[in-house]
């Protein structure tokens, strides 16, 4: 299971999580966010998100 879960309804595609991700595994396409393999489980993306659209799975 992926470590980070994206709430698509909440995400406003602001790019903050992409900017702080040290593993560069988050990609922001035109209309969606995708998290590739290689997550370091640092939780920085959760912290930066202004709307709480990211959370830990499980």
């Amino acid at each position: 299971m992926e470590y980070i879960k994206v709430d698509k309804e909440r995400c406003g595609l602001c790019g903050g999580c992409v900017a702080v991700c040290p593993a560069k595994v988050i990609i922001m396409y035109k209309e969606r966010l995708e998290i590739k393999e290689g997550c370091l489980k640092c939780d920085k993306c959760i912290k930066v998100c202004p709307v709480g659209a990211l959370s830990k799975n499980g």
Partner: peptide, 21 residues
């Protein structure tokens, strides 16, 4: 833009620290 995805592809590290965001 702020997401700055591409610089790291060409060897420029633009990962932003939380204190700078």
């Amino acid at each position: 833009g702020v997401e700055s995805y591409l610089p790291n592809k060409v060897g420029i590290n633009s990962v932003c620290n939380l204190v700078d965001m």
